[in-house]
Amino acid sequence: MIDVKHLKKSFNDLEVLSDINETIDEGEVVVVIGPSGSGKSTFLRCLNLLETPDAGEVWVDGEQINVPGVDVNRVRQKMGMVFQHFNLFPHLTVMENITLAPIKLGKMTKEEAIKKGEELLATVGLSEKADAYPAQLSGGQKQRIAIARSLAMEPEIMLFDEPTSALDPEMVGDVLDVMKNLAKSGMTMVVVTHEMGFAREVGTRILFMDEGLVMESGTPEQIFGNPQNERTKLFLSKVLK
């Protein structure tokens, strides 16, 4: 479903992604872990071209997307993204946040979008917040709305960029529950996170990244139970105390 070949990305002189080769299949829940600055977020952002790769290829559904002439907007409609800082639109109500893209992009009529929005709000457990503005919500609620907003476009793939890192500890569970249910429903997901519990429980595959490379990849049992790479061992010994 997603194919990444020899992906490279630098910011000025700093090489963030050295050479990433990865294939993500339909239905996989790939959890990307690793220390800060290892390139996890940049890798994720290259998948929907929020960052433009310097070299290499990104293929989605058999189509190379990082070449001139590709309609990036059409590709992005297939890939939802959830951000660390939610990035809800503060000037719109929750319902307007959710329905904006489907309506503006002609995917649904206003009535259809609102119906879809109501379903999604029920899924994330926030039906009563349809008319609230983002400023009136807690962090955990904002992130669940952000997930609903992405899902409104009915994407094939969901990308999560540290979705719980900006949340108070007691809010994390609600967001992770929504993500777990999404994984159970068969959604293809790529999740950058520091939540090792989530990675172990929900991930079908773990990628350990460091220094701009995927150092190790495997099932949660392999990575958490019997890591092979020295850096993976060191990282896990620090985070799994």
């Binding site: 929907n48 929020l50 907007n73 059409r74 992005r76 409609q77 890939m79 939802g80 993204m81 951000f83 800082h85 990035n87 809800l88 639109f89 904006l100 893209a101 503006k104 992009l105 952000a146 907003r149 992405s150 476009m153």
Partner: peptide, 18 residues
């Protein structure tokens, strides 16, 4: 306006003008 707002819009598939 925070850059994340533009990124959120673009990630949903809206074009630059929208």
């Amino acid at each position: 306006v925070d850059k994340g707002q533009t990124e959120a819009g673009r990630s949903l598939g809206l074009n630059a003008k929208q």
